[in-house]
Amino acid sequence: MQSFGTSARVGYDSSAFYDRKIYAEPEEVEDGSSEENAVPELNRLYAHSSSSMHELPDNSVHLMVTSPPYNVGKDYDEDMSVEEYRRFLTEVWEETYRVLVHGGRACINVANVGRRPYLPLSAFITADMIDVGFLMRGQIIWNKQASAGSSCAWGSWRSPSNPVLRDVHEYILVFSKGDFARQKPECEQKQATIGRDNFLEWTKSVWEFAAESA
């Protein structure tokens, strides 16, 4: 039997790792029901805040993907403090938790912002999602270097004493509700359509593709 952490794709016993105190607290959350409800209407857009998705019943959505407003002065932004901003987003995370099925996924694309100070929005959102009850599944680094320019922060050009980092990445934070797995109903037992090479590439924690102009 190989020890945990071997480089090859071989069988190993990881129980010693998960028995450590860092994993002492149970992570899976009983959210009351694993029964899934049908969405009343497919392929319809609702033009209002996701903090109240009253059109959707509990436990009805399998996947949520979003990139929230960054609160940095865009036309659609409000001028909020960090705490106000986090409360604003948490209302959406709580409503997302309600509508997701047991084992459903939530994926949030976000970038960190600012320099003085540097605001780790990805860390704030991760902490708030866990507080809501989500299970953290991992984070994908979106490497946007292919579309990054050559600009730098004023006053930092070739300054070894106080360089300023240029972010060429964003995050895709991945969470699930209630369980790390999702038992699909028999009616959904369909054959996977993703190929071997795409599966191996897309399950890596770093993605590389150019960004679109906002």
Rank of each mutant, 00 (worst) to 15 (best):
Y171T: 03
A211L: 10
V168K: 13
T90N: 08
S122C: 11
E94M: 11
S34E: 13
P163H: 04
E94W: 02
Y76W: 15
F199I: 06
Y12E: 10
V113W: 09
N43F: 14
S49R: 07
Y18D: 00
N143V: 04
Q189F: 10
V110Q: 03
D179Y: 05
A38L: 14
N112V: 02
A211T: 14
D58Y: 05
S122T: 05
A214D: 12
S122K: 03
P120Q: 06
E30S: 14
L63C: 08
G178W: 03
E28N: 03
V65H: 06
L42F: 13
A127V: 10
E36S: 13
F175E: 00
G178T: 05
E201Q: 14
S147R: 02
R166T: 15
G103Y: 01
A211R: 14
S205H: 10
R86P: 00
H102T: 08
L42S: 12
R158A: 14
Y118G: 00
G138C: 04
K204C: 04
S176V: 05
N59I: 01
I108M: 06
Y85D: 00
D19C: 14
E94D: 12
G103R: 00
S34I: 12
F199G: 05
M129E: 06
D13H: 10
D128H: 06
Q145I: 09
P117I: 07
S34H: 07
E201S: 10
W202K: 12
A181T: 13
S156H: 02
H48I: 01
F134Y: 11
V206L: 10
N59V: 03
R116Q: 11
W207S: 01
I130R: 10
L63Q: 02
S122A: 15
A24K: 11
M136R: 06
Y171C: 06
L121V: 07
C107N: 04
I140N: 00
L165V: 09
G11E: 07
H102G: 03
K204D: 07
K144W: 04
S33R: 06
V174H: 01
D31M: 12
P69N: 08
P185L: 06
P163Q: 04
E94N: 08
D77H: 11
